[in-house]
């Protein structure tokens, strides 16, 4: 585990989300309504607690941050008007930036595979994404039975669509990479 400068993490988190985690009073309503709650070891409110206590590595290595589906149920019901979905996005972003080993590699790999297609072609290229993801995750057999019907329905195109303004997109991705450094 990297030795993290505590101040640094919190400052960055606040800068990204424009809110202070101290706002959370740990009532657990977010967790109570979270659709992926049953699949997470640490409930979402506990991830906030880790940050409140300065246990940033615990927050960043928690699988919960990757399980978050971004459904915003927590945000819309929070009695303290704390945007937990935004908080989760920021902790994830910082975890990647700090090079913390993800506790949920599959999800991270999926997102990386997805974004790679956009970086390369400008639009999501589902087949390329699936191949890329399967190469990374080594999960070759999942959904293979779906492939033939998906092709026959014309839902997966064999070739990517190339966006003309790709240079702009590459630039955006480059900037995103810079930010993380």
């Amino acid at each position: 585990m990297k030795n993290l400068k505590a101040k640094d993490f919190k400052q960055k988190l606040i800068a990204i989300t424009s809110q202070d985690p101290a706002q959370c009073y740990q009532c657990g309503k977010c967790s109570a309504g979270c659709p992926v709650r049953d699949f997470a070891e640490a409930p979402p409110n506990r991830v906030v607690r880790y940050v409140q206590l300065g246990l940033y590595d615990k927050a960043m290595t928690s699988p919960t941050i990757w399980l978050c589906a971004g459904c915003q149920t927590c945000t819309s019901r929070c009695p303290q008007e704390f945007d937990l979905a935004k908080f989760m996005d920021a902790v994830r972003e910082l975890a990647i930036a700090y090079g913390v080993k993800s506790a949920d590699k599959k999800t991270q790999e999926f997102h990386e595979a997805f974004l790679k297609q956009i970086e390369n072609f400008g639009r999501a290229y589902e087949l390329g994404m699936l191949i890329d993801y399967k190469l990374k995750s080594k999960d070759f057999f999942q959904d293979v039975d779906l492939a033939p019907s998906t092709f026959s329905k014309g839902k997966l195109s064999l070739l990517p669509h190339n966006v003309k303004g790709k240079q702009q997109i590459k630039k955006i991705f480059k900037e995103s990479g810079e930010v993380k450094k």
């Binding site: 740990q26 009532c27 657990g28 309503k29 977010c30 967790s31 109570a32 309504g33 979270c34 709650r37 640490a42 409930p43 409110n45 506990r46 149920t73 019901r77 009695p79």
Partner: peptide, 24 residues
């Protein structure tokens, strides 16, 4: 200890979804 996120009715019962924040 915890707030309830949602209540809905199903078959005459009220489904109360909460979280025990002490036990997690």
């Amino acid at each position: 200890r915890g707030r309830v996120s949602r209540i809905y009715e199903e078959d005459g019962k009220l489904i109360v979804k909460g979280e025990d924040t002490i036990a997690g």
